[in-house]
Amino acid sequence: MPRTSAVEAPDGSQRRATFQRARSHETKRALVQAAMALWRTNGYAKTTVADICRAAGVSRALFYFYFPAKEDVLFEVGLLSTRAARKTIHQHLSGDYDVDAVIASALRSLERSMARNPRDLIVETILEGYRQEQRILAGERAADPDADMFGELFARAKADGKLADSIDTDHLSRLAQMHVSEGVRHWALSGFGDRSFAEVVARDIAALIAGFNHGAK
């Protein structure tokens, strides 16, 4: 009588791990969305961790599992904007591209996102980003790769001959990001007058890139 081969059961532990990761992502997103909704209506300073937990329907213990403090939610909001800009950049790299045009497109997308939020909240987000950067430089926390808006673009541009071979693209990316952060802060404080954030900052970064390319010759 022929022996039947055993059929291996699906890996239940792997399915559980996938489910837990998805659930964890949803919980974190719910906390961020609840915080943003409260900040838009009540302001950042008047919103407490307890308020955010009630709005998201989670316990304070679960909040602190994801975020050490309210300020870390604010930093996550900034990262979400950076991720969206990176996604815009990545989409442009699927075909022929112009570096300055890609940056301008990403900054226009970022400006549309900023326009949906109170300007004082935008300033708080930038200031928290600076505080987090100080902690990173002090070795108190690891750098988040999602905070690098231009890394992929500049690395690709260098490989494609659009940036000089001798250019340190990591350094260029950090400088360009500084222009973005300061540009966001000035825009939120009405420092650009009638000019758009994307117009001013895209021009500044284009000049920065041109200077790097010229200096490398």
Rank of each mutant, 00 (worst) to 15 (best):
T82Q: 09
E71T: 10
A106N: 02
I103F: 00
P118H: 08
A115C: 04
P118A: 10
L74F: 12
L121T: 07
D96E: 11
G57T: 06
D100E: 09
P68N: 11
E76C: 12
I89S: 02
L93W: 00
A55W: 09
I52G: 09
S109D: 12
E76Y: 13
L121V: 11
K87L: 11
A69N: 10
S94D: 07
K70C: 06
L107Y: 02
V99G: 00
L121K: 02
R119M: 08
K87N: 06
T88S: 14
I89R: 05
A104M: 04
M114L: 15
V123M: 07
V123Y: 07
F67P: 01
D100K: 14
Y66M: 06
I89K: 03
D72R: 12
I89V: 13
D96S: 15
D98N: 14
E76D: 13
E111T: 05
E76T: 13
A69G: 04
R119A: 04
A50D: 08
M114C: 12
M114D: 03
K87A: 15
I122Y: 08
S59P: 03
S81F: 12
H90M: 06
D72G: 03
Y66V: 01
I103C: 03
A104L: 09
L93N: 01
V77T: 13
G95K: 13
L79H: 03
G57P: 05
V73Y: 01
R86M: 05
R108K: 13
G95I: 03
R112G: 14
R112K: 11
V77F: 15
A84D: 10
E111A: 03
K70W: 01
G57V: 05
R112C: 12
V99S: 00
L93F: 01
A101T: 00
V102E: 01
L80C: 11
I122T: 12
V99K: 00
R116A: 12
V49F: 06
N117K: 14
R60A: 14
T82I: 13
S94W: 04
A50T: 10
H90I: 04
R86G: 09
I89C: 05
A104G: 01
F63Q: 03
S109W: 05
A61D: 12
F75N: 15
H92R: 14
